[in-house]
Write a protein that binds this DNA or RNA. Sequence first.
DNA 1: TTTGCTGCAAAATGTTTGCACGACC
DNA 2: GGTCGTGCAAACATTTTGCAGCAAA
Lengths: 171, 171
Amino acid sequence: MGSSRPTLRKRIDDRASISREMVGEAEAIFHGHLKRVGLKLTGQRDAILRTFLDTRDHLSTDELYRLVKKHDERIGFTTVYRTLKLLAECGLASEVAFNDGVTRYEHKYNRRNHHHMVCTECGSSVEFFSRDIERIEQEVGRKNKYLPTRHTFQIYGVCERCQKKQKRSLA
Amino acid sequence: MGSSRPTLRKRIDDRASISREMVGEAEAIFHGHLKRVGLKLTGQRDAILRTFLDTRDHLSTDELYRLVKKHDERIGFTTVYRTLKLLAECGLASEVAFNDGVTRYEHKYNRRNHHHMVCTECGSSVEFFSRDIERIEQEVGRKNKYLPTRHTFQIYGVCERCQKKQKRSLA
DNA sequence: TTTGCTGCAAAATGTTTGCACGACC
DNA sequence: GGTCGTGCAAACATTTTGCAGCAAA
């Protein structure tokens, strides 16, 4: 979609929570999806969507559940779990696997395709963008006669902070 | 490490089981590792290593356990589980996450760095090689002051066979 | 009013650990 | 002979499902 270099836009793309208009658009997408598949719009589902959009990326189901609960004590884990699946279905959320044993979700709405580099010491992560990855996905698919639909790419390593920490503990 | 185009070598690299000499080398590596960290060489550990080397890639702990059991009924799941960890420690095995909820392992010994494209319909996978990925790992690490140690890269899609199956069921 | 939603509790799944007995060095 | 390995069983962590009461359309 967007083609020019990211400048100001990047500020928005890199932020976890998104602007008010975007929340509105996301809600519209979600509501449309619910109607399309014959599901109902409920207070819980709305609350979960809002909390999800309003928060940093890479939430596990349990983490989102705890956040949602702060706003409404009476929302259960199961509902958060199932709502996340719905959000993934309509493209508002996507799973990211950091291979730490839990499934995480991040917003997908209006964000450039990006990847993650994860610190294996402290779990922090930074995002990066790479056109090459998309190109490789297409190329490899073509060569092997696969119809590629998605990919995962994560780099694991040690962040600057933890490198320093390690050096200090050696000294 | 190999730099020229893979020709005959590819036949070996792409096969799941490895040659007899390689098994010997792998055993030497394993035995060396055991000695180094003060662990004992046992019949079970040897049997598990052999079965692992002799079998196709991408085994879950449970799958390897079932295979090992065919040769020796009395080897337990726990031992397989722990031995796989040992093999990963000394570099003979590495975890691959296909995001299907189970941790899988593949041989790492004497194989080129490679990646997987996985069919989301039937679970089959093909391997591919890409220099770009290694380059990107280094670049991104440098830019973000991370010390990169490893990465995961999988492409998901639909294989030719399953594409045809889908077309047929539509007709 | 009907249909689907909610949330509890329990099942299912996969991974990891404690411990008593037995095997290796 | 002592130490570590083994395998059972049980603990754990996470995801998923059945069901009775409740709420949206």
